[in-house]
Amino acid sequence: MRQAIAIILSLAVLALFIGLGTWQVQRLKWKEGVLAEIDARIAADPVSLPVVPDKARDTYLPVTVSGQMDDATLRVLVSTKAAGAGFRLISPLQTDQGPILIDRGFIRVADEMPPVPAGPVTIEGNLHWPDDRRSSTPDNDVVGNTWFARDLDQMADTLSTKPILVITREMTPAEPNVLPLPVTSEGVPNRHLEYAGTWFLLALTWSVMTLTLLWRKKRRNP
């Protein structure tokens, strides 16, 4: 009787592990579809900047903006795989809809701060509301101009702009010493394959342990 109960419980646990792994595979397919939609949205033809951009509706929206940049730049500390540590450069752009924030791109830590473009510019990019801040992220050093997160309200207050950020994909005329870091879907978490593998591995481990215990018990009680 006890052995039958133990077998039933073991099978129930095995079914739970397999079910959770299967669910994560389904979630993986769903997330891949979401990422494909995001990639298609990012790469779509740019439109004019909405009069009142909305985070829920307009995140990743491709836009074209034109205007004159003010002579001010915030440095946001980041790290890239290709170039290592550096800064994102955030500057205000005066547009016909008012001043907004422009993420111009990346320079290395050792590079000199490039001046803002002197004349009118046209920027193709994507609207974004970054979520850079974590519990361990230091407070931004506004006085020392070293920022650790792109906090839109704080940046907008510092640069006297609207809390609207366009991340540059292409600027005309181009800035030769600034590398654009356009929006991609790489930052969207997708660990469902890892989770599925974990649950299926637990199912395999549980099966091996259960069969081993049953085999040992059978040897002791032929």
Rank of each mutant, 00 (worst) to 15 (best):
Q154F: 04
N145H: 06
D132I: 00
T168K: 01
R134F: 11
D157I: 09
D157K: 14
R133T: 10
R133F: 02
L159K: 09
I164R: 01
D157C: 04
L159C: 06
D157E: 15
R150T: 13
T137G: 02
L152E: 03
T161Q: 08
V143D: 14
D139G: 13
I164T: 15
V166H: 02
V166P: 01
A156W: 11
G144P: 06
I164M: 03
T146E: 14
M171V: 14
M155V: 08
R133E: 12
T146G: 06
D139V: 06
L159F: 07
D157F: 08
A149R: 01
M155G: 01
V166C: 02
T172H: 13
Q154S: 14
V143Y: 08
T158L: 13
F148G: 00
P163H: 07
R133K: 14
D153K: 13
T168F: 02
L152I: 09
P138T: 06
T161I: 11
W147K: 03
T161W: 05
V166S: 03
V143H: 09
R134I: 06
A156T: 11
L152Y: 02
T172A: 15
P163L: 09
M155Y: 06
S135K: 10
L159R: 09
S136T: 10
I164G: 01
M155L: 15
G144S: 11
F148E: 00
N145S: 08
M171D: 10
T168Q: 08
L152M: 05
I167P: 07
R133M: 07
M171H: 11
K162F: 11
I167S: 14
T137M: 02
E170T: 14
T158I: 11
L152D: 01
M155S: 12
A156R: 10
R169D: 14
N145T: 04
R169I: 06
T172E: 15
V142Y: 10
R134D: 10
R133C: 05
V143A: 15
M155A: 15
T172F: 12
E170I: 12
D157Y: 07
N140H: 02
T146Y: 02
D157R: 13
D141I: 00
L152F: 07
L165P: 07
S160M: 14
A156S: 15
D139R: 10
L152R: 05
T158S: 13
E170Y: 11
G144I: 07
S136C: 01
P138M: 08
L159E: 07
W147Q: 01
V142P: 04
V143Q: 14
R150N: 05
I164S: 03
T168V: 13
T168I: 07
D139I: 04
D139P: 04
